[in-house]
Amino acid sequence: MDLLASPEQEEIAATVAAFCAEHLSIRQLRSRIGEAAAVDPATWARLAELGWFGLGLGADQGGAGYSVVEEAFMFRELGRCLAPGPVLGAVLGARVAAACGDATRCRSILAGEALVAFGDPDAGAVVGPRLDGRLLLLDAPGSDYVVVCDTSGAALLAIGEVGPLQRLDSLDPGVRLATAEVSDLAPLHFVDAATEPVGLRAQVLVAAEAAGIAEATRDISVAYALARQQFGKPIGAHQAVKHRCADMAVAAVAASAQAFFAALALDRSSPDAAFQCASATFVATTAAMGNATRNISNHGGLGFTWEHDAHLYLKRAHLLEALLGGRAAHLCELLDAPGPLTV
């Protein structure tokens, strides 16, 4: 048992972080506000070249042969810098295609030729061999497919199969949001959660991304608390700010620890995997929301400006918290599923 990152995992995280700092930073996110796609095609091709979308797929499926644990390391880094682009859709979409034996579509997604929007089902929507209900689509413009999942299974559908897109004036300027209806639709592919638990994987990756937000906002606050002087000393010397930063550290550590614990549980198909994944999404999105809020408080008036990044973290945290059924969705899982002492 060792819950610390291996040197190889640290390297994966460092590589992702370095690439994001150069090509997927908040500066780039801001510069593309108003553009049709979140990421320019050349950058997207680079991501594909680097093998990001197939990190957790087997080599026989065109992937790198790592697991959901390494994917979680990648998503934590994406969360830290609010990396734009439909990476979640690509990772999950390729997995559904691979699980359904569709090597052609899988490879085109891995190669970055086909884009996949993540479709989050509204409460009451049906995910199954026939799809029904309303979806919130992340980065649908320019996408070829939509991947939809919940804890019962996952579907891949062509973007043309969903009803007309209702584009939103997106709260989160880093993600192009739209809604669409599907009505009794047979998707290109559907895979049952018992065969391939895509929904649990989505929970882990959202948790890892949220953990990254919790960590980044903690670090931004600590840097500001050291630099900003009031009453003749850094504001971080005042306990009101100092203790808020300490609380941010506690929340971030809890979020990361549980996200990776859940990734390991899913990777091992532990009997308590569903419980661990639901816990991870809950704890990590709560931490992201809490820290994004505290980060604004620590910055005073600056935290309310468009110019400062604090609001971008807050808005992404809201989006992640609302995905996968939101906070209430995992209630039964968290109450009734076998936990650590009963397995």
Partner: peptide
């Protein structure tokens, strides 16, 4: 229950 799970993960770490 979710927070206790996180506590356990922190303990393991």
């Amino acid at each position: 229950r979710a927070e206790v799970a996180a506590l356990r993960a922190m303990t393991y770490a």
